[in-house]
Simulated scan of single mutants.
Amino acid sequence: MSVRDEPGMTVGQVAELVGVSVRTLHHWDEIGLAVPSGRSSADYRLYSESDVHRIETVLVYRETGMPLSIIAEVLGEPALGEREHLEQQRKLLVARISHLQQKISAVDQLLREKGMGRKLTAAQRAEILGPDWNPAWEDEAEERWGESDAWKQSNKRVSNMTADDWKVAKRNINVLEEKLAEAFEEGVEPGTERANELAELHRGWVGEWVETTHSKQVLMARLYTEDPRFQSHYDDRAPGLARWVRDIVEANARANGVDPDTAEWV
């Protein structure tokens, strides 16, 4: 290891550099996917440039939709050098683009055959919801929950929403997020009466789309700190807001008899 590559970056510095949460880096360390090569005298994780390069490689593979378990296998293949990894990443990304183009063609065909009607396409919904909304999230949600009753319930509601319905939904989430950001900036502590009220407002808003228990809400709120896109959505409004929203949801869940550490999709 060269002097330049000596481990010296903390987990917080690396998280900010690559755009993931500290919790994500801790998880990747625990599962052996991206392990820091050093430790401080106080036993804190320290990352070298090579460690950061591996994390960036993980992120590219993850962007292609590859599960973490498969990424670990690919990175553990000694026959694959840096160039081979890049070529494989490019191949996967091209395949993903092709898959998305096929979906766009299918939507265009439906529009030609059926006209606009009451239903809106993901692109039209995104236009109403604003630049923060990414239509690809709907594809990811379907891949994750498409076989569940919750997804079918939500999809049925969404498919019948008009443009005016989406505009009302956009106003509602803006109001909720303004209240959350205001309380966060005022220093409202998780577990307090006001924080619990806001957590219930959040659960009520999610409940407009799909039946939401406190346990389900906990699992949804995890995405706010574990998925960089959700974290950015909240933290762009107020740095640290994503973590705080997750904290108030978990504190409220405890107050309602749910242990966040063992929460299940029930």
Rank of each mutant, 00 (worst) to 15 (best):
Q109W: 00
L110T: 10
G115L: 03
K103F: 06
E113C: 10
K103E: 15
L100C: 07
T121A: 02
S105L: 06
L120N: 02
S98N: 13
R112Q: 12
I104E: 10
E113K: 14
Q102V: 03
V94C: 08
A126I: 02
V94S: 10
R118V: 13
Q109R: 10
A123L: 08
K103V: 07
S105A: 15
D108V: 04
Q101K: 09
A126S: 11
D108S: 13
R125D: 05
A123M: 07
A126T: 03
G115V: 03
L100Y: 08
Q109L: 06
M116I: 12
Q102I: 01
M116L: 07
V94F: 03
I128W: 00
R96E: 13
I97E: 14
A123V: 05
I104M: 03
V107W: 03
R118C: 04
A122I: 08
H99Q: 15
I97S: 14
Q124I: 02
A106G: 11
E113Q: 14
A123H: 03
A95N: 13
H99L: 10
R96N: 12
R118D: 02
K114E: 05
I104D: 12
T121E: 01
E113H: 08
A106I: 01
Q109H: 10
G115R: 00
K103T: 05
Q124R: 01
Q102T: 12
A95Q: 13
R112V: 14
D108T: 08
R96Y: 07
L129E: 14
K119L: 10
R125I: 15
M116F: 01
L111G: 12
Q101Y: 08
L120W: 00
G115C: 06
Q124P: 01
K103Y: 06
I97T: 14
A126Y: 05
Q102C: 11
I128V: 15
R96P: 06
A95R: 14
H99F: 09
R125G: 06
L110D: 06
R125L: 08
M116R: 14
K119N: 05
G115Y: 00
E127N: 08
Q102E: 15
Q101N: 15
Q102L: 09
S105I: 00
H99P: 08
R112D: 06
R112N: 12
L111I: 11
A106K: 00
